[in-house]
Computed example of a mutant assay.
Amino acid sequence: MSTFTIFLILIVVVAFLLVVVIMVQNPKGGGLSSSFGGGGTQQLGGVKKTTDFLDKSTWTLATLLLVLILLSNLAIDRGAKEPESKALDQDAATTEQPLPNTPLNKPDNTATPADSTK
């Protein structure tokens, strides 16, 4: 299992935990719930210590998610593979390509049809 795969698994787990922690929290502002008459139910299960724990865990998980995403960029395997495009290949830019044989670019030793009738 590569390091990048481990980072992907950790990112998915932290993102899932972040969603769960956010969904458990009680809404703090008015929002849509207070405009529809749900403003009095916000105090139903609100304990101050639980709210502080959920706030801290949200910030911790969000920071951890951001750090994991940035570190996973370092774990991407960038082996010495051939570039996918010839424009990215440095050697191809300096290599000269031969010109095709066209009437304007024909060798001197060939005879033309006008020369063969003489």
Rank of each mutant, 00 (worst) to 15 (best):
F53D: 03
A62T: 07
K106N: 14
V21P: 00
F16Y: 14
K81P: 01
D55E: 11
L32V: 15
T94L: 12
L88I: 02
L32R: 11
A75V: 03
L44V: 10
A15W: 02
N105R: 12
D52N: 13
T110E: 12
P98Y: 06
Q97W: 14
A114L: 11
L64N: 01
D115S: 12
E84R: 09
D52V: 12
S35A: 14
T5W: 03
N73K: 09
D77W: 01
S85P: 00
T41G: 09
T51G: 04
A93Q: 14
L8V: 06
A15V: 05
D91H: 11
T94P: 01
V24Q: 07
T50R: 12
F16D: 06
L44H: 06
L74P: 01
V47H: 13
D91Y: 10
T94K: 15
F16P: 02
A111S: 13
A111D: 12
L54T: 02
N101H: 14
A87G: 05
T95M: 11
I6T: 12
P98F: 06
L64W: 00
T112S: 13
T102I: 10
D89M: 03
L70T: 04
F7E: 00
V19L: 13
M1F: 11
G39D: 14
T63E: 04
Q42I: 06
